[in-house]
Structure formats: structure tokens, C-alpha cells
Lab assay of single mutants.
Amino acid sequence: EESQDIKALQKELEQFAKLLKQKRITLGYTQADVGLTLGVLFGKVFSQTTICRFEALQLSFKNMCKLRPLLQKWVEEAD
């Protein structure tokens, strides 16, 4: 059922947002740094506010889903 899928996805997004924040802090990056690095990787800079709202799960579900693969890549590249 679709609502189950969405619930599962939301849970996954929550966990990912936590992971992103932990990783960012561990590596000593600011939210603005992450936004700028996305610009380098994908040619589209994201504001500190956007990263902040992603981490706080304050973006729309659709936006969270759109941003996630980009931030996933950041997490992979950041090591």
C-alpha cells in the first residue's frame, strides 16, 4: 500500500538526515559548506537554510526526496 511506502520513505529520510548531520559535524563542515560543495558536485548551490531545513526535516516530502540523492553523494564524497 502506498501510504506504507511513504511512511517507510519518511523514516528513511529521517535516518538519513540524522546521518548527514552527524557526518557533517564530525568532519567539521558547516551547513553552508555542504550547500557550496553540492554546487561544486552538481552545479547547483544550495543555501545554508536549505541544508538546515533538510536536517530538521522541515522541507516538503517532495523536496526531501529530490535533495536526498544529492546529499547522499555528498556523504559518500566527504570521506
Results as ranks from 00 to 15, higher is better:
1 E>M: 15
1 E>T: 06
1 E>Q: 13
1 E>W: 08
3 S>D: 12
3 S>T: 15
4 Q>P: 10
4 Q>A: 10
4 Q>C: 08
5 D>W: 00
5 D>G: 07
5 D>R: 11
6 I>D: 13
6 I>T: 14
6 I>E: 05
7 K>Y: 10
7 K>C: 10
8 A>S: 14
8 A>C: 14
9 L>Q: 13
10 Q>P: 08
11 K>P: 14
12 E>R: 11
12 E>S: 10
12 E>G: 06
12 E>Y: 05
12 E>T: 05
12 E>N: 00
12 E>M: 06
13 L>N: 08
13 L>S: 01
13 L>R: 00
13 L>I: 13
14 E>N: 00
14 E>A: 14
15 Q>D: 13
15 Q>A: 14
15 Q>S: 10
16 F>G: 04
16 F>P: 12
18 K>L: 10
18 K>A: 12
19 L>F: 11
20 L>E: 07
21 K>A: 05
21 K>Q: 09
22 Q>H: 12
22 Q>S: 15
23 K>S: 04
23 K>A: 03
25 I>K: 10
25 I>L: 15
25 I>C: 07
27 L>K: 07
27 L>R: 06
27 L>Q: 03
28 G>F: 00
28 G>R: 03
28 G>S: 01
28 G>W: 01
29 Y>I: 01
29 Y>W: 04
29 Y>V: 08
30 T>L: 00
31 Q>S: 03
32 A>N: 09
32 A>Q: 09
32 A>G: 08
32 A>M: 04
33 D>H: 03
33 D>P: 08
33 D>Y: 00
33 D>I: 04
33 D>W: 03
33 D>M: 04
33 D>C: 01
33 D>N: 00
34 V>C: 00
34 V>A: 01
35 G>S: 14
35 G>R: 07
36 L>Y: 11
36 L>A: 15
37 T>S: 14
37 T>V: 02
38 L>K: 03
39 G>P: 07
39 G>R: 07
39 G>A: 03
39 G>H: 05
40 V>H: 13
40 V>P: 05
40 V>Q: 15
40 V>C: 15
41 L>Y: 07
41 L>D: 08
41 L>M: 13
41 L>E: 08
41 L>G: 00
42 F>D: 04
42 F>K: 08
42 F>R: 02
43 G>H: 02
43 G>Y: 08
44 K>N: 08
44 K>C: 06
44 K>Y: 04
44 K>Q: 12
45 V>P: 13
45 V>N: 12
46 F>P: 12
46 F>G: 01
47 S>L: 01
48 Q>G: 15
48 Q>T: 02
49 T>E: 14
49 T>L: 05
49 T>P: 07
50 T>P: 02
50 T>F: 15
52 C>S: 15
53 R>G: 05
53 R>N: 08
54 F>A: 00
54 F>I: 09
55 E>M: 00
55 E>H: 04
56 A>R: 04
56 A>T: 08
56 A>F: 04
57 L>K: 05
57 L>E: 02
58 Q>K: 11
58 Q>A: 04
58 Q>W: 09
59 L>H: 04
59 L>R: 03
59 L>C: 12
59 L>A: 01
60 S>C: 05
60 S>V: 00
60 S>G: 08
60 S>L: 08
61 F>L: 12
61 F>V: 12
61 F>Y: 10
62 K>A: 12
63 N>I: 08
63 N>M: 10
63 N>S: 15
64 M>S: 05
64 M>C: 01
64 M>H: 00
65 C>Q: 13
65 C>P: 13
66 K>G: 09
67 L>S: 03
68 R>L: 08
68 R>C: 05
68 R>W: 12
69 P>A: 08
69 P>Q: 02
70 L>F: 14
70 L>I: 06
70 L>S: 04
71 L>R: 04
71 L>Q: 02
71 L>H: 08
72 Q>K: 11
72 Q>T: 06
72 Q>M: 07
73 K>M: 01
73 K>C: 05
73 K>A: 10
73 K>I: 05
74 W>G: 09
74 W>D: 05
74 W>S: 02
75 V>G: 02
75 V>D: 05
76 E>L: 06
77 E>C: 07
78 A>V: 14
78 A>G: 07
79 D>P: 15
79 D>E: 11
